[in-house]
Simulated scan of single mutants.
Amino acid sequence: MQLADERIELLPFKDSDFELFLEIITCPKMMEHVYDPLTYEQAKSSFEARLPPWKFESDKWRSFSITEIVNGEKLGYISLRIVNHEAKIAEVGFMIKANAQGKGVGSRALKLIKQYAFDTVMLNKLVAFCSVHNSGSFNLLEKEYFIRESRLKQNTLINNHYRDDYAYGLCKPT
């Protein structure tokens, strides 16, 4: 399975991706719209749960590093997690390093993960959630044809404050 375009490739998480994951998941600025930054121990545990093997029946995240083909730089990661096996629905989540944001990396990664989800995993629908204040994420989702389905009031607790989230959905093209 190769998930790549002319600029980036998505590779299943391996041990060497821990530094990338740690850099993102423990950074207060990167996590300001997601949840409280994790400690080293929490990050290690979360990362290890994302390592292969992964099966459709699993309820854990299937995570991929986003790597620039030309120089091998790791730009972020994107993940899928089946949330309803019977209806074939998965949540997608992504984190792009600050120096790679606004350069089309997220859009490329989301295109590739949609193709993988619908054509390889044979999912019916993808869902995504993001803070109503995270314009980068919701603009990216909308650019990639996700439909805003609802606003979830006080859905996430970050830094002891409840935050509203948008819920997005994208059904498999027919």
Rank of each mutant, 00 (worst) to 15 (best):
S45W: 03
S45F: 08
S46L: 07
S46F: 07
S46C: 09
F47D: 00
F47C: 04
E48M: 14
E48H: 13
E48R: 15
P52E: 07
P52V: 04
P53A: 05
P53R: 04
W54R: 13
W54P: 02
W54T: 11
F56G: 05
E57M: 10
E57R: 10
E57G: 15
S58I: 04
K60P: 02
K60C: 11
W61Y: 14
R62L: 15
S65P: 01
S65I: 09
S65F: 10
S65Y: 09
I66P: 03
I66G: 04
I66C: 02
E68P: 08
E68D: 14
E68Q: 15
V70K: 15
N71M: 05
E73S: 14
E73I: 11
E73R: 13
G76Q: 05
I78Q: 00
S79E: 09
S79L: 08
R81N: 08
R81A: 12
I82N: 05
V83Y: 08
H85M: 11
H85D: 13
H85C: 07
E86G: 11
A87S: 14
A90S: 08
A90K: 01
A90P: 01
E91I: 00
V92E: 00
V92C: 03
V92G: 01
M95K: 09
K97N: 12
N99Q: 12
N99E: 14
Q101M: 12
G104V: 10
G104R: 08
V105C: 06
G106A: 03
G106R: 03
G106I: 05
S107Q: 11
A109S: 07
A109M: 01
A109R: 03
K111Q: 13
L112F: 00
L112I: 01
Y116K: 06
Y116D: 09
F118P: 03
V121S: 06
M122D: 15
M122Q: 13
N124W: 04
N124T: 12
N124M: 12
K125P: 06
K125R: 15
K125I: 07
V127L: 08
F129W: 11
C130P: 00
S131E: 03
S131N: 12
H133K: 14
N134C: 05
N134E: 02
S135V: 06
S135R: 10
S135I: 06
S135P: 03
S135Q: 12
S135D: 12
F138C: 04
N139V: 09
N139S: 13
L140G: 02
E144F: 06
Y145P: 02
F146W: 05
F146D: 03
I147G: 07
R148V: 09
S150T: 06
R151P: 07
K153A: 14
K153M: 11
Q154Y: 13
N155I: 02
T156V: 14
L157A: 07
I158F: 03
I158K: 08
H161Y: 09
H161P: 03
Y162F: 15
Y162A: 12
R163A: 13
D165G: 05
